[in-house]
Design a protein around this nucleic acid. Structure first.
Length: 603
RNA sequence: GCUCCCGUAGCUCAAUGGACAGAGCGACAGCCUUCUAAGCUGUGGGUUGUGGGUUCGAAUCCCGCCGGGGGCGCCA
């Protein structure tokens, strides 16, 4: 927020270096890492080191010389506008901002920009974020939730940072798992489906687990049981064949059951406040993907071993690599049906050609790293230039204390179960902490708090880290959690409500009084937000926003506790602090919004 | 065998080339006749797995080793 001053000072330092025969090195600015006062800081170690390399050091050690330069630069700068004082310490040049001026500027910016505070300038670039890729004919579990909340937060951050953003979902509605459910439903359960959207989704999952059990080979079976299993498997294969051939009955059955899964998915996305722009289905890229395979064969990139083998691409060999890295990829089964990898080739093409995106981000767990490396390399070999604009954002998968989740074994923690449990726990907490809250408000508040806790527990861990899902940790309302941050907003709301003034109408923004350390820290945190947004967008890391929101909330809670606002003795101090509270609420709300979390009015 | 990810306080995690490595949980001690105690304040806790290297400066970058997890021809 002091960019102009910073640039002017930097220019003056360059002049100073030029005048004194000191090498010019790019200066890196950062906030002074001590609380109590704010300003910007840069060091001269790189400058001194460059000087030493040029043979002009006169034998002075780098740290000592850096300190010398810092002092000389300080003296050369003299008094600068907006800067109250400078100091040279340990090789760093620290420039302190004029307190009242800086405070006024930050608060004014936040209030003027409102819900856009922190947003970046338009970047003139279109980014597609693909996430929310659960398989249909299953139910949405906590691993899908991590994927979806991560993708949604990323999309919001990238969009807020100034990129045009398209949210894409890619449900897996195809494959052996889907056919397995279809077969078992048709054979044993047709017409018995529950009416409730979520019960029905979970019921499909149960059918899947049961069917897989029937169809998997086991030791110690009687010949009759073995024959039965083989008969079932033959039926399933026949169903897959019929699907592939476009059999009307099977296709109809498939569409109907798929829609049950989609209803559940849409309902959950609505609970999460996720609005997908583009839906891709695996089944829709099935045909186009086979055309790409034909082309790859025709051009000698792929090798067709049918009918005795599949269609493969020897990627390492084509790239001339000595060590095995990308391996050999199978891109078509020997029976001519497509695979997951096949379809990702066509999908990538569609994303760039039909939606004209400049960049394509895939939010998919890190077990699929090789898959995406292969897909992108094959696209490259095919001559698809935008392959280099594809990026797999890998995140660590979610497991349970008892081990990996397994839909086949029915060992999963479903999102809906966790959601219901969250609501119950919040309602219990409200009953205990805020018994006066009207009954009619409780459900809505509980949804926001419960979802806030869940979202924050996922987003406050860096995406590349595996995670063991512990419901008690995920639904904790104390400490470094979503509710902690929401509570800061609620406390700000409370003060502003009781103040009885309209913040927008009031423009007393005079911070020309002795600010406490808590006010200074709070203002410092608010001023960081725009830079945090940019960094999070560049690095694809929602964690940075999550960590920031917590730091901002901590600054607010400390301020709230120690600094009287409504009770301030001086009328002008009271007015200024109300502005500060209003801007803190705005900054907190904006940061939470990027995490797909909203704060209730009261809690 | 090849390859990717991880290793930081008792536990869960931050800090991705800069000043004293920070939070939460757990433990202990305080703070509600004052704007919401889902809060605040304080105490204790570390050879950043390990050995080298690069650098003025390394948890961070490079190489080796140890330990944990994932992936590697017709699953998604």
């Amino acid at each position: 927020m002091f960019e102009k001053e910073q640039q002017s000072i930097e220019a003056k330092i360059r002049d100073f270096c030029a005048a004194n025969d000191i090498p010019q090195v790019e200066l890196k600015w950062m906030p002074i890492p001590f609380s109590g006062e704010w300003g910007i800081s840069t060091s001269f170690f790189a400058t001194a080191a460059a000087e030493a390399k040029a043979g002009k050091s006169k034998g002075i050690p780098v740290p000592a010389r850096a300190q010398e330069i810092a002092e000389a630069a300080k003296n050369a700068l003299g008094l600068q506008p907006g800067i109250s004082r400078g100091e040279a310490v340990k090789g760093y040049l620290n420039l302190y901002f004029s307190t009242a001026e800086y405070a006024r500027r930050v608060v004014e910016t936040v209030l003027a920009d409102g819900e856009k505070f922190g947003a970046g300038h338009p970047k003139n670039e279109r980014v597609m974020v693909e996430y929310a890729q659960p398989n249909t004919h299953h139910s949405f579990h906590i691993g899908h939730y991590r994927n979806t909340i991560l993708g949604e937060a990323l999309a919001r951050i990238v969009e807020f940072a100034g990129f045009e953003t398209i949210r894409a979902s890619y449900p897996g509605d195809l494959g052996l798992g889907v056919i397995t459910v279809l077969w078992a439903y048709e054979k044993f359960y047709k017409g018995q489906e529950p009416a409730d959207i979520h019960e029905r989704g979970q019921w499909l999952l149960k059918i899947y687990a049961e069917a897989t059990n029937l169809l998997s080979e086991k030791e110690g079976k009687t010949p009759a049981e073995k024959a039965q299993r083989e008969a079932y498997d033959a039926e399933r294969r026949e169903m897959y064949r019929k699907w592939d051939a476009g059999d009307e009955y099977v296709r109809q059955l498939w569409l109907e059951t798929r829609e049950w899964s989609m209803q559940e998915l849409r309902d959950i996305l609505e609970m999460m406040d996720v609005k997908i722009d583009v839906w891709f289905f695996e089944s829709e890229v099935d045909e186009p993907s086979k055309k790409i395979v034909e082309e790859l064969i025709a051009r000698g990139i792929a090798e067709d071993e049918r009918p005795t083998g599949p269609v493969i691409v020897k990627i390492d060999e084509k790239l001339g690599l000595a060590k095995e890295k990308y391996r050999v990829a199978v891109i078509l089964r020997s029976d001519g049906t497509s695979l997951y990898l096949t379809k990702d080739l066509a999908l990538a093409e569609q994303k760039f050609d039909e939606y004209h995106v400049d960049r394509s981000v895939y939010v998919v767990d890190n077990r699929q790293s090789l898959h995406f490396q292969q897909a992108f390399k094959i696209l490259e070999l095919w001559g698809f230039k935008q392959a280099e604009k594809c990026y797999h954002l890998a995140y660590g998968f979610v497991s349970l204390p008892e081990g990996a989740m397994s839909a086949r074994r029915g060992r999963v923690v479903l999102f809906k179960e966790v959601y219901d449990e969250a609501i119950q726990r919040v309602l219990a907490t409200i009953a205990e902490k805020n018994p006066n809250m009207p009954e009619g408000e409780r459900r809505g508040v509980a949804q926001k708090i419960g979802m806030g806790a869940l979202a924050y527990s996922m987003l406050s861990v860096d995406n590349n880290k595996d995670m063991v899902f512990d419901i008690n940790e995920a639904l904790s309302f104390d400490g470094k959690t979503g509710p902690y941050i929401q509570n800061a907003v609620v406390r700000a709301n409370s003060i502003l409500r009781k103040s009885g003034i309209d913040i927008r109408a009031s423009n007393t923004r005079n911070f020309d009084y002795q600010l406490t350390n808590h006010e200074i820290e709070l203002i410092e945190q608010m001023s960081r937000f725009p830079a945090v947004v940019q960094q999070a967008a560049e690095e694809y890391r929602p964690l940075l926003v999550a960590a920031y929101a917590y730091d901002l909330a901590t600054a607010f809670h400390s301020f709230y506790h120690a600094v009287p606002v409504l009770q301030a003795d001086d009328e002008s101090v009271r007015a200024a602090r109300l502005q500060l509270v209003a801007s803190a609420r705005q900054a907190l709300t904006n940061a939470l919004r990027l995490l797909a979390v909203s704060a209730p009015e009261v809690m």
